[in-house]
């Protein structure tokens, strides 16, 4: 059944080779063997330049100009006004006192979300990794069980849970069976915030479990054998051997999940739309809505907000680099 497919792939592979060989060989003669490396780098660097490096610079131009025009030449220079507009608050602890109150609500929501989501997700991932690291049958299957939701698209994840959590959904039916009152889970602000954390843990913990499991499996077994010989208790083995040796992996996992959590958007946007009100609006949704979804499109404000987010991400990435380096040095 796969034979025609394989043949088609092989044919495509050969055709692509013939298609590019003549121009590439010609180009090689043109630039000479010493510069041929640049020829191979060119397509990738072109894309990087156009869609990564150039935008970084342009972002600052957008952040310092106003109006809803997309073309930079039509945008008047406003200096730091976008930033000061975002940052002007009479009381920073009270989003209502800020000029851009939704931005500050999004900042606080993101802060809480990052702390709670990362904290609980790492805890669950660690427990799961420890259990999967035990000598259990069907190891591969159970690893797959916890990993499966990672592959699902954020939209699918959100719709699955929306279907479960709706007012007349199975979850409320189960509660009523137990004699409890049903709740409009995604309409109550506090519960909605709980569920965006729950759902994003559900969707992503398998990934971190996998990395922690790889870290656990890298711990040499003779360390454990020595501890068993000495009659160390389980708790002692965990706190004195497993945790210290897992620490480097743990740091990487924490930083990685922090970086992801700061940029959380997809599942939450589909699940709650940021609501009720702006109770579950996170920072990236604010950027998306300011720049693209609402009219007028405030590109400058969106760019300024994303630069502020970039600063946070940069700090986290530098932390990650330090962590990876100390891990490499052991």
């Amino acid at each position: 059944m796969f034979k025609p497919l394989t043949q088609a792939v092989q044919l495509g592979y050969r055709t692509a080779f013939n298609l590019f060989e003549w121009p590439m060989a010609g180009a090689q003669r043109l630039v000479g063997i010493s510069r041929v490396a640049w020829l191979f780098l060119l397509p990738n660097l072109l894309i990087f330049g156009l869609f990564t490096f150039l935008p970084i610079i342009l972002n600052f131009f957008y952040a310092t100009t106003g109006s809803d025009a997309i073309l930079l030449s039509q945008r008047p220079y406003v200096g730091a006004e976008n930033f000061s507009s975002l940052l002007s608050c009479t009381d920073y602890l009270d989003p209502n006192s800020c000029r851009r109150d939704v931005f500050w609500r999004a900042v606080y929501n993101t802060g809480w979300f990052v702390v709670l989501q990362v904290g609980f997700m790492i805890a669950f991932s660690l427990v799961t990794a420890l259990i999967l690291n035990r000598d259990i049958p069907l190891k591969g299957f159970f690893r797959g069980v916890f990993f499966y939701p990672v592959l699902l698209s954020p939209v699918v994840v959100a719709l699955i849970w929306k279907w479960i959590l709706q007012r007349y959904g199975i979850f409320n039916a189960g509660l009523e069976d137990l004699g409890l009152a049903p709740v409009d889970w995604l309409i109550d602000a506090h519960w909605a915030f709980f569920w965006i954390i729950f759902v994003s843990i559900w969707a992503h913990m398998g990934f971190y479990t996998l990395i922690l499991l790889a870290g656990l499996q890298a711990i040499p077994s003779d360390v454990y054998e020595a501890a068993e010989m000495d009659g160390a208790s389980r708790f002692r083995v965990f706190s004195k051997i497993t945790m210290p040796l897992l620490m480097p992996t743990m740091v990487v996992v924490v930083v990685l999940s922090l970086i992801r959590a700061v940029q959380a958007f997809d599942e939450i946007f589909v699940l709650t739309g940021g609501g009720p009100g702006s109770a579950t609006t996170l920072i990236l949704q604010y950027i998306y809505e300011t720049g693209f979804a609402s009219r007028p499109q405030l590109f400058g404000l969106a760019a300024a907000a994303s630069i502020l987010m970039a600063v946070v991400l940069l700090v986290l990435t530098l932390l990650q680099l330090r962590a990876t380096r100390s891990q490499a040095e052991g």
């Binding site: 970084i56 342009l58 720049g291 760019a303 987010m309």
Partner: peptide, 13 residues
């Protein structure tokens, strides 16, 4: 540099 922080300029390009 995740693309999420460059949404506006990438859109321009």
């Amino acid at each position: 540099i995740p693309p999420t922080i460059n949404l506006v300029p990438i859109y321009l390009v």
